[in-house]
């Protein structure tokens, strides 16, 4: 079995890694990573805005975002993929490819989840932070941007990394709408070989595992570091 795995890898490693590039579109593992990173980079600022609205004292900002978060958390990602797949082209008037569809979907879906993470970070800060900064004469926005957000975002780094892992795992759904990424590449390999499905999907699973396991370790390292820093500052405070 392992001989087979090595055979497949030596023959098809390029397809797994970069898809048909340079003879066709970029794909494979590289595209999975590009897709996941772009989704996080675009969704993150959006989610900070949503989180500010979600913790806002004004219902007119708070309620729509709350509804948005519950709707996004309540429907499967595949459903949102299909909505994007036919709504976005009819909104902008031209067809979009699998990659763009998947990117839009992930941004929409993750904005809700990231919003909850940032909100959790904001709400776990002690109330004294707001009170002190308001007492020092900072307004709502200055309190938010100079006092609350820096601390909340730093504390939520581990959750952000685990959300990045989720995004990487979610990119695999791109296969359903023929977006070029690693699961799609593995299916191409499987369709060419036909007789070795176990080996092909085994390679796919192991690649995802190595990628996500590494990131999990990184998240845990950050968690320990933040924990230490918090304990240190507590000692100073007492």
């Amino acid at each position: 079995m392992f001989a087979n795995v090595i055979d497949i890898l030596s023959q098809y490693w390029e397809l797994f890694l970069i898809g048909q590039y340079p003879h066709g579109p970029l794909g494979g593992l590289v595209n999975t990573l590009i897709l996941a990173s772009l989704a996080l980079i675009i969704a993150f600022p959006l989610s900070v805005l949503l989180a500010i609205a979600r913790t806002s004292p004004f219902g007119i900002f708070r309620h729509p975002v709350t509804v948005w978060v519950y709707v996004m958390r309540g429907i499967p990602l595949i459903m949102i993929i299909f909505w994007t797949y036919f709504l976005v082209p009819s909104l902008i008037g031209r067809n979009i490819g699998g990659f763009t569809t998947m990117l839009c979907t992930l941004v929409l879906y993750q904005s809700a989840y990231l919003c909850e993470i940032v909100r959790g970070g904001l709400q776990s800060l002690p109330a004294g932070q707001v009170e002190a900064s308001r007492a020092l004469g900072l307004g709502y926005f200055r309190t938010m941007f100079f006092i609350l957000l820096p601390q909340a975002l730093y504390n939520s780094i581990p959750s952000l990394i685990s959300q990045f892992i989720s995004i990487i795992k979610e990119t695999s759904l791109g296969y359903i709408i023929n977006a070029q990424e690693m699961t799609f590449a593995a299916n191409q390999v499987n369709n060419q070989l036909l007789v070795k499905p176990f080996e092909v999907y085994f390679i796919l699973a192991v690649t995802y595992y190595i990628l996500c396991f590494g990131l999990t370790q990184l998240a845990q390292w950050f968690e320990r570091r933040i924990e230490k820093k918090r304990q240190g500052s507590d000692l100073l405070a007492t």
């Binding site: 085994f202 699973a205 995802y208 999990t216």
Partner: peptide, 23 residues
């Protein structure tokens, strides 16, 4: 736990249905 949390659910489904079933 680590195996099941670090691999996309879709890939696990495909591994079972296409891969493991062929063994």
């Amino acid at each position: 736990v680590s195996y099941h949390r670090n691999i996309p659910t879709l890939v696990q489904l495909m591994l079972w249905y296409f891969g493991i079933s062929s063994l």
